[in-house]
């Protein structure tokens, strides 16, 4: 399918959804009332108008900035921690064996229950949200890097050893790139989780950020405000994801299937 056709169809689905929503909530049927009560469902035009108002007033940018900061910090610390421990555990089998049950237990724990604890420890500012995002990102990156280092092709490894590489050179030329590959393959997921950590944290207790804005609107039954927050969140996620895709394309240029030419013969 051509790119433009695809894009047109994608936009079409969005418009169709908005149209149905509009018809159900804003067009009066018998009795002078729409089929769905706008108090519960708002209307697309109200949501857009509210979002526009917040954008123009600058209030939204402040909250977006807070959420973005938390997301970036959570991702950075989570990725650094995950890479470091993933490497360590993959190269020191004994550590992996000893800590295995604890890591599984920690990863299985629903992070939401940690949010109040983090709020207690780190306060209601950004750091409790960063901590929540960290616990999500860390495990994704950790497991991927661990896997990546352990599953380095034995042939590539044997070849590198036959080339005379010592442990440090193996680390640099073989293990490290292999681990990064796996980390990048989970980049979308981990960035997404960093954002989830930030928003959920804000939602549960804060005074700024997108999650806070949504929570604030919910507490006064302002459905338009809630949907406006969700809309902004959705656009925000798509922008971040596009950014991540661009980074990924640059960093995984050596991998097959990234659109690069393949020679024949």
């Amino acid at each position: 399918m051509r790119r433009t056709t695809l894009l047109a169809m994608q936009v079409g689905v969005g418009l169709a959804f908005l149209l149905v929503w509009h018809l159900l909530t804003a067009v009066p049927v018998s009795g002078g009332k729409p089929l769905f009560d706008p108090f519960f469902f708002s209307t697309p035009l109200d949501v857009l108008a509210r979002t526009w108002k917040d954008l123009v007033s600058g209030e939204l940018w402040y909250h977006l900035g807070i959420t973005l900061t938390e997301t970036v910090l959570a991702f950075t610390f989570g990725a650094i921690g995950g890479i470091a421990f993933g490497f360590l555990f993959a190269r020191r089998e004994i550590l992996a064996s000893v800590f295995d049950p604890y890591i599984k237990a920690a990863n299985a724990l629903p992070r939401v229950v940690l949010a109040p604890i983090f709020a207690l420890w780190f306060g209601l500012g950004i750091w409790s949200k960063v901590a929540l995002g960290f616990t999500l990102v860390f495990f994704i990156v950790f497991f991927n890097v661990y896997q990546g280092v352990r599953e380095v092709s034995p042939v590539v490894l044997a070849n590198a050893r036959m080339l005379g590489m010592n442990e440090r050179q193996l680390l640099r030329h073989v293990y490290w790139p292999a681990a990064l590959t796996w980390m990048f393959s989970s980049l979308h997921t981990s960035v997404g989780f960093a954002l989830v950590g930030a928003v959920v944290g804000e939602y549960l207790g804060s005074s700024a950020g997108l999650g806070y804005k949504i929570h604030e609107a919910e507490s006064v039954f302002d459905v338009t405000g809630v949907f406006s927050g969700m809309l902004v969140l959705a656009v925000f996620v798509i922008v971040i994801d596009t950014f991540v895709t661009a980074i990924e394309k640059r960093l995984t240029v050596w991998q097959p299937g990234t659109g690069a030419a393949t020679a024949q013969g």
């Binding site: 092709s153 042939v155 070849n159 030329h173 073989v174 790139p177 292999a178 050596w254």
Partner: peptide
């Protein structure tokens, strides 16, 4: 080696 043993992340 019989199999591909080049480092795939290097040119």
């Amino acid at each position: 080696f019989q199999q591909d043993a080049l480092m795939p992340w290097k040119t």
